[in-house]
Design a protein around this nucleic acid. Sequence first.
DNA 1: GCCAACGTTGGC
DNA 2: GCCAACGTTGGC
Length: 158
Amino acid sequence: MAYWLFKTEPDELSIDDLAAEPQRSFLWDGVRNYQARNFLRDQVQLGDKVFIYHSSCTPPGIAGIASISRAAYPDPSQFKPDSPYFDAKSVPQTPRWVAVDVKFEQKFARFLTLDKLKKIGTLDQMPLVRKGNRLSVMPVTEQEWRTILSLTALSNQD
DNA sequence: GCCAACGTTGGC
DNA sequence: GCCAACGTTGGC
């Protein structure tokens, strides 16, 4: 079992959307970066745990946890001309992009802002807190996972 | 809305 | 295979 962090714009899919249907598997599609794709395709496994990170919002940060309910399969959106994720160069015989399914696990009682995460010295190796990083699927070490979980257990007083 | 960072594209 | 131009991400 491995740990991951997935970025999502909460306008598109948020932790509350997942929480609203806790039994449902949600399609996690639209990953169009090769490094992120390779993680999804080669390493993300059924049962892995995922921090759900809300990006392009105020404030950005980690909102909760999901788990992988289906390992990588061809991302259907790449073949749909109407989709913003359509890729004309991808052919069904050799699909270029993959999707996974995720399922709700928990919503943090306290949203963990990026700002807060940046202040935790032991998290400074995470691509997330590194300047200019755009990776939307990234591995999280067990140590980082524990550190972040412990932060959610703290009070609002800093 | 700005723009830094960085990935991708395409001419050569 | 280089690299300038261009497009996208995503915090601010």
